Computed example of a mutant assay.
Amino acid sequence: MNPSTTSPSCAQALAAAQTLGLDRLDAQLLLLHALGKPADARAWLLAHDTDVLPPQTAEDFRALSLRRAAGEPLAYIVGSKEFFGLALQVDARVLVPRPDTETLVNWALEVLQSPGMLAAPEILDLGTGSGAIALAIAHSLKTAGRQGHVVAVDASAGALDVARDNAARLGLDVDFVQSHWLQEVSEHFHLIVSNPPYIASADPHLDALTHEPLTALAAGPDGLDDIRAIVRQAPASLLPGGWLLLEHGYDQAVAVRELLVSGGFEQVQSRQDLAGIERCSGGLWPGG
């Protein structure tokens, strides 16, 4: 039997995936995954669009496409997500790292490069998940030839397992602590960063995020419960002149700045993401 009558070509398989509702890029990345090829090999698909897929590959690709069509994040299906130039392994134990969070990392690195910062700063990432923020900072310091001690905290043992695996695979030295925010943290830091849950518990957008851990997304009626806890607890773990930087929702900047000011922080400000949305807010702890 001619295999072309039972198994589709690359182009036919991609077209079938798009009829399921997948966008072209997702379909291409899933097909590359099914073929065992890297995500940057999309040009290969164009050059081989008439190649007939092996039956097992076609079957695997169909199954992957159905998972994506059902709303499962692409990163969970392929098992990885790039963040700040790092390839991170992710699964349903952690949130998929978002590009918006790179705004927080860039601000953290700016703080760490400020004139008053020590050569070997102490840094804490609260709610580390896959380790994205902590590992991006650790990698940037290592690349710059700088010393620094990075600690990453999460309440979820499963998330810490994912983060530890990422750190080991990337060859980055980060300490991991299981703790609900700062409860089990005894050290003091020059910089605390966090991308905590900040979606209101009744927000309809949660319906589209059912594949990701709810505890890493929602934080009370107004979405600010965890940010309140962090702002309240952070001063006891910050050195004088240390910074607290927080990611938050698109419409929460004013409320978060008010929390920081009322909590005694100075130089309170916000930073915009690439879309021009105030995505992060932070302040300096005067201490002393």
Rank of each mutant, 00 (worst) to 15 (best):
G148W: 10
G116I: 03
T143R: 15
L104R: 13
I137W: 06
G158P: 12
Q113T: 05
V151W: 06
I123A: 01
V151Y: 01
G148N: 13
I123M: 06
V105R: 06
L104K: 09
S140I: 00
G158W: 12
N106W: 04
A144Q: 15
A138P: 07
I137C: 10
A152F: 09
E110H: 14
L109A: 12
G131C: 07
A132V: 08
V150G: 06
W107I: 07
E102L: 11
D125A: 10
Q147F: 05
L118S: 15
L126H: 01
A144S: 14
L112V: 02
R146W: 11
A132Q: 06
N106S: 15
A152T: 11
G158K: 11
L141E: 04
S156G: 07
I133N: 03
A155P: 05
T103R: 06
A136I: 01
L141T: 03
G129W: 04
V111D: 01
R146Q: 15
P121R: 03
G127C: 03
S114V: 04
R146H: 09
E110F: 02
S156C: 11
L141C: 05
H149I: 10
P121H: 01
S114Q: 13
Q113C: 05
H149N: 14
A132F: 08
L135T: 03
E122S: 15
T128H: 13
G129I: 06
N106Y: 01
V151F: 00
S130K: 07
I123R: 00
S140G: 05
E102D: 12
A152I: 10
G145D: 13
L118Y: 00
L104S: 08
R146G: 03
S114T: 04
A152D: 10
G145R: 10
G129T: 04
H149M: 09
G148C: 14
K142V: 04
G131N: 08
D154H: 05
I123L: 05
A132E: 07
A132T: 00
A155T: 09
E122L: 12
G116D: 08
M117V: 12
V153I: 13
L141D: 02
G148L: 12
S140C: 03
R146M: 09
G127W: 02
D154K: 08
I137A: 10
W107A: 07
G131Y: 11
H139L: 00
V111N: 00
S130L: 05
A144K: 14
T143F: 03
M117I: 08
G148F: 06
G131D: 00
N106T: 14
I123Q: 02
T143D: 13
V153G: 03
S156L: 06
L141W: 03
A134K: 01
A144G: 12
V150N: 02
A155S: 13
A138N: 08
L118C: 13
L141V: 03
V150I: 15
S114G: 15
V105Y: 03
L126V: 15
G148Y: 13
G127D: 07
G158N: 11
G116M: 04
V153P: 01
